Computed example of a mutant assay.
Amino acid sequence: MRATLPGGLGVSLTATTPARPGLRVEAAGGGRLLIRQAERIVLLARQGARHHGVRYARTGGYRSPLPPITAAAARRVQETSPDAAVWAMRWTHRFADWLGAADQDGPLHRGRWTFAAGMPGWSISTHWDRLTRVDPDRGHVTWFGYGDPDDDLRDVLPLRRLTPAGHGRVRAWRRQARAGVLPPVLLWWVSGLQTLVLLDGHDRTVAALAEGGPPDVVVLAPADQGADRMRHEINGYVRRMRHLEAADVPAARLAVESRGLAEGVAGAVRAEGRTTAWPVRGGSREWERLAVRLAPGWDTGSRP
């Protein structure tokens, strides 16, 4: 089942299968996490003891669950979309269709999901600039602004190494960016990492940044069970409207409040929920064994 999000921001989707996806987060004790794709471990991570960030190690085994996007297909979507909102919605539906068919490599599993166009409100646009400058296979993602160094502050973590801007594949996407037909990239919210990971569009990301701007994005997230947040928005609106009506304010001011409610509800609907994590079979001992084998020499110790 699929429905449009308020304001045309994207779509919500209810998946009935599978119970356990091919691309999934697994967790062990002590803040240890990993992302598995089919039988491959694609990323290992460990949260800091003070919950200010997470250390990670990519293994190089990740592959996109989406089929390749041809230049001709990108051009057709652009040419048949009357405006940017329709263009974004068409790509959002395509991503949802493709992930629905990606049984062994995709993250969808039973439950409610959102595919939302655009970055979340908490993201910081300047963080994009760091992405192609500092993106090590073994690194650290800082949370809550505790950046040391500042390059650890990021909103997006690629699941494989980014291709240099001068590579042939990226140059082809750069031509599409200059022509205004570059497709958006697909991001996935992983709450255990407290960041968005790049599911599809690594080369498109580099191309967009090389051409002077961040890429358009679609964000996949488990739907937030946001009844409390929705109720807070509506109750706040009711209190403000009662106050304003008693003060006999102009109708234009009441319209502003109504638009504010619509924006607040839309934000609540697209809020990112908690990512389901399955247990690592073998627990912490198996996670440590995998870290030694897949990322030899990596410092997995906790970081403040």
Rank of each mutant, 00 (worst) to 15 (best):
G260H: 06
V249A: 13
M230C: 13
R20S: 12
M230E: 13
R20P: 10
R281N: 15
W113T: 05
V219A: 05
L199K: 05
D200F: 05
L153P: 00
F95V: 03
R229V: 07
L44H: 00
R154Y: 05
R75M: 14
G166D: 11
H243S: 15
L193E: 10
R174Y: 13
P158R: 12
G168W: 11
E257A: 11
E79R: 01
R274M: 13
D299F: 14
Y237V: 06
S12P: 00
S123A: 14
G297F: 05
P183V: 08
M119V: 08
A207M: 08
G267M: 13
A251V: 07
G213N: 09
M119P: 00
Q104F: 14
P183D: 07
R171W: 10
R110K: 10
G29V: 08
A3R: 08
A71R: 02
P214A: 04
P107T: 05
L187A: 01
P279L: 07
Q37Y: 06
P68N: 06
M230A: 13
W87Q: 04
A291P: 02
H52A: 07
N235K: 07
W278D: 11
P215Y: 01
R169Q: 15
M241A: 06
L13S: 04
R40P: 02
G192T: 03
E272P: 12
Q37R: 06
I41S: 01
W173D: 00
D216V: 00
T17E: 15
R229W: 09
V11G: 10
G30E: 10
V238H: 05
T70R: 11
A277R: 02
A223P: 06
H109I: 08
L187R: 01
A247Q: 15
Q37E: 10
A72T: 11
M89I: 08
Q47P: 01
P21L: 01
V217N: 04
W98T: 04
F95K: 01
Y237G: 06
V217Y: 00
L5Q: 09
Y56R: 03
Q78H: 15
R160T: 06
A57Y: 05
P65D: 09
R94V: 02
A291V: 05
V249S: 09
R110W: 01
T205G: 07
F115N: 01
R293C: 13
T70C: 14
